[in-house]
Write a protein that binds this DNA or RNA. Structure first.
Lengths: 342, 342
DNA sequence: GTGAAAGCGCTAACAC
DNA sequence: GTGTTAGCGCTTTCAC
């Protein structure tokens, strides 16, 4: 004999008894009210209100095998870059009646796999992944689970040349192309001696790769960079700048892999009396609000973080509703924003 | 006859059959391995691995009426101030085997109530609330549900004078006292004409209240402030500063209700050639990494956001494990950090 | 140490 | 429109 129910918890059968109808009728009154007579509906609703009944969604999930929960895994939500995407995703899903289970990988593949496993155990209806999906085992696992998956913030692996690599759906942009565009912008503004400040993390590395390619294309081969171990904090910017200047005499432009870091570099320049952009150009990445608030205003690469979260949510909602989500691979692009700091 | 199980989904009974044991034994092998013979355990584990079995936690939750899910509601996760608390909370809960369901109230009480209702329907094992819990209906609802609740970021309602107001547990600090301390710091540094920049939101208002009280105590009665409608972005700082300076001739100190805003003010001062702190003192709130990266380094009020998330998580975990969570009301305090900007 | 039986609270089929 | 029946996949007594 199982343990007794939680004290005071009212069940659907209690409502049924109170309303003088059967349990199914209550279920229908709640889920498909138009299939219930208006009068019955009123009686049931009154009983629900009177007893303070709250449907047990866990039981519903078990019966329907749909949890109405989507899980998202990001490296860390304390990085504004991801938190805005999560914000938009959570909001979009909530509007569609879904809730978000949050997981943080701390940039570690193993943590991510463990989280995926735990989320699959919860029978989440969908998954949003940022910063992984590269491990073959994980990919196979996800495919086997048959759960809709959206990858964000990265289109690598979803490149035209490698269609097999797109797990299921993806919304993002090419970090490599963005890095290259940043280099082109700096070249066009007349800078010649580049440096890069960023974290030692996949997307940052890709930006550096593109940045170097862009520099090389302009005949500027060496671009020093000391990637920092994530998570990176703004206050590491000063040190990084110093190292870069030591390594590269005549450094005249720095690309930071996010705007906050760039703001830190800007402050450091004020402190050391380095004219920006006169003596050193500083370019950010992301176009966070701080970019236009900075002095001088930061040139940067705009990434539509919020749109990324919304699109990811919409693709998932469409798929879960049985609709066609449209394209499975959405390149939301990026945009070089030329302001004062370059 | 109900629908067939999801294709390919392997159930516990499948594992049992494959291992040649009963279903209960598999359950025990997974949940209480020490109650199973070593040999049996090995056989079961092999079967689990071979079939790629993942326990269905939804079914487990229904049977045990414990979901191992905790829900958190914050105004928005895209505010770094909250995202760090959420980061720590998620991490702490994950270490204890719990997962976090995230909700965003967008600073709206109605949204918050709706979320609470939805989360209670999911039979979450605990709730972490930030920025509400003030509505009587909501409080009654939560009390009736009998779910452990931790309020964060605010100890109001948990004040010594009003013990009834502390819903269940709380970890935070007094925003009023913090505002007063900021005023005291500015007074002590010799500033006399204060202004305040912040959002029109409960905690910000409390800081302003304390700030004004502190100013008044020093004989500085008027402290202009134009609270902005949340969510507030850094790039609104410049405009706010201009308005403040227009309203208050001789303004010589500004308290911003977060560091990012203060960084925006700092940049604006650079832009307009206002010497900081010579001409204008700028004080932040929070002690985000940007505070020490800024030039001049920002004086601020340090709030241990990460610790707040960890403590909230620990209190919940302790309670859920049936242990004594210790104090139900934890004041983690704050600390005025005097740096260069004041 | 292992198994059989009885639910957890709900929804999906199928009658009536 | 409404009710009856049979599960969803697991955990928990209680025997053996």
């Amino acid at each position: 004999m199982p343990r007794s129910a939680a004290p005071g918890r009212v069940r659907m059968s209690d409502v049924a008894r109170a309303a003088g109808v059967s349990l199914v009728t209550v279920s229908r009154a709640i889920n498909t009210p138009d299939k219930v007579a208006a009068e019955t509906l009123a009686v049931v609703r009154a009983a629900v209100a009177r007893l303070g009944y709250v449907p047990n969604l866990t039981a519903g999930s078990l019966a329907t095998s749909r949890s109405r929960i989507v899980a998202a895994i990001v490296p860390t939500v304390s990085n504004q870059v991801f938190s805005e995407t999560v914000e938009a995703l959570t909001r979009t899903l909530a509007e569609g009646g879904y809730q978000l289970l949050l997981g943080q990988s701390a940039y570690r593949g193993a943590d991510e796999e463990a989280l995926v496993e735990a989320f699959l155990g919860r029978r989440v209806d969908g998954l949003v992944l940022t910063g992984c999906g590269q491990g073959a085992a994980l990919r196979a696992r996800l495919r086997r689970a048959g759960v809709p998956v959206v990858q964000t913030w990265d289109l690598r692996g979803a490149a035209e040349g490698a269609p097999a690599a797109v797990l299921d759906m993806a919304v993002g942009f090419s970090n490599v192309a963005a890095g290259r565009a940043a280099a082109a912008h700096l070249v066009q503004r007349g800078h010649r001696a580049f440096g890069f400040i960023g974290a030692d993390e996949e997307r940052s590395r890709q930006r550096l790769e593109g940045f170097r390619a862009g520099a090389a294309a302009a005949g500027l081969p060496d671009v020093p960079a000391d990637l920092m171990r994530p998570p990176v904090q703004v206050d590491q910017a000063a040190l990084q700048l110093a190292q870069l200047m030591a390594r590269r005499a005549g450094l005249d432009a720095v690309l930071c892999s996010n705007d906050l870091l760039a703001a830190g570099v800007l402050f450091e320049c004020h402190r050391r009396g380095i004219a920006v952009p006169g003596k050193l150009a500083v370019m950010g990445f992301g176009d966070l609000p701080i970019a236009r608030a900075a002095a001088p205003q930061l040139s940067t690469v705009r990434v539509r973080r919020t749109e990324m979260g919304e699109r990811a949510g919409q693709m998932l909602l469409a798929r879960l509703a049985g609709h066609d989500p449209g394209a499975r691979r959405v390149d939301i692009g990026f945009e070089v924003v030329a302001r004062q700091s370059t």
